Simulated assay, not measured.
Amino acid sequence: MLNDRLEALKDYPFQRLRELLAGVAPPAGLAPITMSIGEPNHPFPGFVGEILAKHLPEYGKYPPILGTPEYRQAAVNWLGRRYKLPAGLLDAEKHVVALSGTKEGLFMMAQAVVPTRKGGGTPIVAMPDPFYQVYAGAGVLAGAELLLLPARRENNFMPDYTGLTPSQLDRMAAFYLCTPSNPQGTVADLDYLTGLLALARKHDFVLILDECYAEIYSDKPPSGGLEAAMQLDGRLDNLVCFHSLSKRSSVPGLRIGFVAGDPKVIAAFGRVRNYGGPTIPFPILHAGTALWNEDSHAEANRDLYRRKFAMAERLLGNRLGFYKPAGGFFLWLDAGDSEKAARKLYAEAAVTVLPGAYLAKADDGTIGKPYLRVALVNDLATTEQALTRIRDTLG
């Protein structure tokens, strides 16, 4: 009666965390602090509420499934500013589709690009290990074989695609990559991205870049897939890039983002979305348009994360394998045994973090098991309190 492919998927990480902490009581009188989920808690721009209120009556209308022309054009304009793209490269009608958050788009993209057979066998969907679990769910439920590429400290937590075999490449349908990465916060440089995109074109698979943390970085802006396309030849073939306002603008509850790239892939994805994609209400599309058109709030947001990473560096120093990530808002701390450390933190310090073992497939003791993912999404005072508790409990 049920889809037997579900058997290949583990329980979602947060369900596993609830089971791990079941029956564990935090210390009485100590306020719990949640750092397990990447939910930005920064203040969002005041104009968002004003726009939603102004357009409230439009909740009574069916919105277009692919987003309004104004929203898609705002996405094109932002991509041009952010990645210094030549004018006219992107057409809002052909190259962009609005999303109800990038999660649903990342999942549904596999339905558009994974064929029944490829290279004489079952198609392959590749991704780093550890990984955002949606990638695995997308590949498995599209009927693909998963290929997990280790992302360890010694390779800057980026998967090494140079060792892929001809057989694997011929069967490859899609390659998911998050940069800046979740959970480690490392960044794929332009050479890495151009090499991977060239490989995608040579073997005709789709490079799916999850760039939702692209506006949160410590020093220089991370390179992006569209820049890699410009570096190669200016074509968008075999490339799609996902972006979200949840992280950039601290509006996770709005559930709005977009995907941009290869017009053939975008058209196929639009067909899939017509069948199963959620529409985005007009008031939210108006707010999203304004957010992509305004950059100063994103700069302030980024500065706040920088202050928290400086705080983490000061409080943790060389403890727990600390390093300051190049992008994103997670710490990836080496605690030896992530499940044991997570239980200890909750029981003794009332801090909830996510075991890295829940974000990885391989269980060889090095991929995810030693690590804790710590989301620096709370305000400065709460973050300092939580990091102090982590240091005093585990450090």
Rank of each mutant, 00 (worst) to 15 (best):
R389M: 11
A312C: 04
P278E: 07
D233W: 11
A188W: 01
S246F: 13
L376N: 02
Y59L: 15
L190H: 00
A198N: 10
G365L: 01
P281A: 09
P128T: 05
A341S: 12
D91W: 14
I51S: 08
T34V: 15
S218K: 09
A342F: 00
L316H: 06
D237P: 01
E7Y: 11
G277F: 02
A326F: 03
F205V: 07
T179Q: 08
V251E: 02
R306C: 09
V113W: 01
R72L: 07
R201E: 08
L89V: 13
L6C: 07
M108D: 09
A287S: 05
Y135F: 15
Q168M: 04
Y176E: 07
A267I: 01
I216A: 09
Y71F: 15
G80P: 05
K324I: 05
A310E: 15
F175S: 06
D129P: 09
L147N: 07
H42W: 12
G23E: 08
V97K: 00
L331S: 02
W292N: 02
V240A: 05
R307E: 15
M109Q: 11
F157Y: 15
N156K: 14
S246R: 12
R273M: 06
Y213W: 15
L199M: 15
G253R: 14
G368L: 00
G261S: 14
P27W: 09
I65R: 12
Y132T: 03
G336V: 05
G137W: 06
W332D: 02
V187A: 07
P281D: 14
A92W: 06
Y192I: 05
T279V: 14
R307P: 03
G119M: 02
P222G: 12
P86T: 13
A75D: 02
L304F: 04
T186Y: 00
V206H: 01
R72Q: 07
G88N: 14
G321Y: 04
A347C: 13
C241G: 00
T289D: 04
K324N: 11
R389D: 06
K10V: 08
L56V: 12
H42L: 14
D4R: 13
D210V: 09
R248I: 05
F330S: 15
A260I: 09
N156Y: 14
F205W: 03
V259Q: 04
D337E: 08
A173C: 08
K340I: 05
D337W: 01
R255P: 01
G395M: 08
L209T: 01
R117V: 13
P355Q: 04
R235E: 15
Y132R: 12
M230N: 13
T382I: 05
P150W: 02
G253D: 15
G80A: 14
R389Q: 07
V374E: 03
R16T: 00
L164N: 05
Y83E: 11
